[in-house]
Amino acid sequence: MNGTIALFLAQDGIINGAIYALVGVTLVLVFAVTRVIFVPQGEFIAWAALTVAALEAGTVPGTAWLLLVLGIATAALEVVREGRRLTIRRVATMLGFDLALPAGLLLAVIWLAPLKLGLAFNAAMTLALLIPMGPLLYRLAFQPLADASVLVLLIASIGVHFALVGLGLVFFGAEGVRTTPLLSGTFPAGPLVVKWQSIGVLVVTVLVLIGLYAFFERTMMGKALRATAVNRLGARLVGIPVASTGRIAFALAAAIGAVSGILIGSLTTIYYDSGFLIGLKGFVAAIIAGLHSYPLTALAALLVGLLESYSAFFASAFKEVIVFSIILPVLIWRSLASGPHHDEDEEA
């Protein structure tokens, strides 16, 4: 390996690391607010990339149909669950958010997709299709389990992942896609040729991190989310609607996932099931950082990205093994560093 290759690998690693950082930070966010270890975050990324690809091809993306399916399922289940307790206002929101919005988006996509309106439209439409999925998934799967233990929520999360991957195959098919970069072209930097898209990925990642910081530190809603994370009961007692903080967290997760997907689509080929591995690598980063610090998670994600790209060079077949095995030493260190036992949540 010479210096150029090393630099090239580093560039690759940093770009992937930036994507993992977005995943990792989202996982920390969702875990903090809802205690859900949100394994399916990767699915949002894969679906966003697949949606952009479909729009580029001028076809209706599977996500448009999926959103409608999710909306109908959520509304139907909520009617069954709540029955007579439903208020007019609630029904109106459900009609608007769960049914009219997905149906409207679907019609818009059917009308607009063949016109191939270009990058900005594709990105905006992808965000519009994916963001509502976050709160819908939360209401469908996790809200009824809000009182359950972390373990039960984790198992549910894995169940959601399982269902979503299956749905992904149905709605997107098995073919892989690669999208056109948002930023085309390259520029030379010493011995390297750097893609503008790579710079774009880094800039967006940093902007998202800053945005999250501003949201949690400066806005009332962000503070409410943090309060819920610290103590659900306490937050409820001071009038924070705890269920809606969960929905907001999931909307944020879907939004960040969609952004990551739009970015990553042109860097690597994405299949309906690519999200899992991307998501898990973000996870490795979040675990290294102990599932609670945003900056540490971002740093750990860079480390994972670099490790992956160098191990891809030295031992490509064992790339995944190496990446997933680094959590072992991290867990050992955490285990040694951990003090006396903490009491975990009571039985589920």
Binding site: L140, F162, L164, V165
Partner: peptide
């Protein structure tokens, strides 16, 4: 089956 199993898993827990 993965769709059915996934939904089943969440449904049982709920």
């Amino acid at each position: 089956e993965s769709i059915v199993f996934g939904i089943l898993m969440v449904a049982v827990l709920q």
